[in-house]
Structure formats: structure tokens, C-alpha cells
Amino acid sequence: MRTHAALLVGAMVLLGGCIGGVGGTTSDDASRQTDSPTPPTTTDVERTVNATFVVEDGENVTVELEVANEREERRTGLMHRESLANDTGMVFVYESAQPVSFWMKNTLIPLDMIFVGPDRTVLNVQHASPQPNATSGELKTYPSDGEAKYVVELPRGFANRTGVGSGTKLVFEGAPPTVESDG
């Protein structure tokens, strides 16, 4: 399957005008900012989970999420994907809660980025537009409003359509996904 979303180092650490890697203090996903001669066409996501957003004063909504819980899966995200069905997306899973920021490099579809804290409460929602051919210096970034343990990406408009926003609870069916060892 094709995929997206570039993750950024630290709470948006600027590196010579470029932003790269995952949030927090780690830089294990920093290489994501570089372009490869042949872009990846798939993410090796091994499983999906169902999760429900518990919407106050609205109807709860269940989604099916591909689990990006390994370094390379988080680097690739939903890059190069041409479509994404309603109520399906990807959940990025981190070892510990940390400030994170995403970009839309090599992303072809608009997305809602839903940043979720370790207590599985939505911190904030960012409505992201594709920037498939942008240079690193041109990329708009979409940060979390606090320390995120999970980031859920769904088709843009999902949050507005369903009422998902700050304070909404995310409940995983079964045990929440965890980070897998990167060997």
C-alpha cells in the first residue's frame, strides 16, 4: 500500500532551514527528509486495529487504522498513496509521549492529523494539505499541542464531519498498539 506523512525531530527543530525526523528528543526518523531516487510505493504495515473516537454530544465513530509502530513505517507513513477510504487511516505509535510535528512531503491526499496524548485524549487536530513536490524549505509543518503518544491520520474532513477535536477520547479495540523493536 502507498503511504505518507513525514515526521519531524524534536518539537520542530530547525536544521539549516529544513525540518526533519520525528518529534521528541530522538532523531531516529530524521532521514525521512531526504529524497530517494525511487520513492517507496508501500509501507510494510503488518497489522491494523479498530479504534473508536468517543465524541461528546455526537455519535461515536469507529475507524480502521494501519499501525505504523516501527521506525521505517513512521518515516514512510502515507506517502505516495493516491486515495484513502473514509474511516480508514494510519496510527503512528511512539515509545513515549513527546512533542511531534508532521509534514506532507510526497503526500498526494489531504489529511486530518489527530494528535493523541498517552491517556488517549485528543490534544489537537491539524488539517493538512498535500505538498507532493515541495522542497524541505517549503514544507508546512503540523505540530502537536503537547506530548503525543499516537498520531492518527484520516482523510481530511473526518474531524469536522464527526466532531472529533481536543478532549475527544480514543479507545482501541483490544490492547492499544505498542512500538515494535527496530532490531
Rank of each mutant, 00 (worst) to 15 (best):
Met1Phe: 09
Ala5Val: 10
Ala6Cys: 11
Leu8His: 00
Ala11Tyr: 02
Ala11Ser: 08
Met12Gly: 04
Cys18Arg: 15
Val22Asp: 10
Val22Tyr: 07
Gly23Asn: 12
Ser27Asp: 07
Ala30Phe: 13
Thr34Tyr: 15
Ser36Ile: 15
Pro37Glu: 08
Thr38Arg: 15
Pro39His: 15
Thr43Gly: 15
Val45Asp: 11
Glu46Asn: 12
Glu46Met: 10
Thr48Asp: 13
Thr48His: 09
Val49Gln: 06
Val49Arg: 10
Asn50Phe: 14
Asn50Gln: 15
Ala51Gln: 09
Ala51Pro: 08
Val55Tyr: 06
Val55His: 02
Glu56Trp: 06
Glu56Pro: 06
Glu56Cys: 06
Glu56His: 09
Glu59Cys: 02
Glu59Trp: 02
Thr62Ser: 06
Val63Leu: 09
Glu64Val: 14
Leu65Asp: 08
Arg71Asp: 12
Arg71Ala: 15
Glu72Thr: 05
Glu73Phe: 04
Thr76Lys: 13
Thr76Gly: 01
Gly77Phe: 03
Leu78His: 05
Met79Asp: 03
Met79His: 00
His80Tyr: 15
Ala85Pro: 00
Ala85Ser: 03
Thr88Leu: 10
Thr88Trp: 08
Gly89Pro: 04
Gly89Tyr: 00
Gly89Ile: 03
Met90Trp: 05
Phe92Thr: 04
Val93Phe: 09
Gln98Cys: 01
Gln98Ala: 14
Gln98Gly: 02
Pro99Ile: 08
Val100Arg: 03
Phe102Val: 08
Trp103Pro: 03
Lys105Met: 03
Asn106Thr: 02
Leu108Ile: 03
Ile109Cys: 11
Met113Cys: 14
Ile114Arg: 08
Ile114Asp: 03
Val116Asn: 12
Pro118Glu: 14
Arg120Met: 05
Leu123Cys: 06
Asn124Tyr: 01
Val125Gly: 05
Gln126Ile: 03
Gln126Ser: 12
Gln131His: 13
Pro132Tyr: 10
Asn133Phe: 11
Asn133Leu: 14
Asn133Cys: 07
Ser136Val: 12
Gly137Pro: 01
Glu138Met: 12
Pro143Ala: 08
Ser144Ile: 09
Gly146Glu: 04
Ala148Pro: 02
Ala148His: 05
Val152Thr: 06
Gly157Glu: 02
Phe158Glu: 04
Arg161Cys: 00
Thr162Asn: 07
Thr162Gly: 07
Gly163Met: 05
Val164Arg: 09
Gly165Val: 02
Ser166Tyr: 07
Ser166Asn: 13
Ser166Trp: 04
Thr168Glu: 00
Val171Gln: 14
Phe172Gln: 05
Glu173Thr: 11
Ala175Lys: 09
Pro176Glu: 08
Pro177Thr: 01
Thr178Phe: 10
Thr178Ser: 13
Thr178Pro: 05
Thr178Glu: 15
Val179Gln: 06
Glu180Tyr: 04
Glu180Leu: 10
Asp182Lys: 02
Gly183Ser: 07
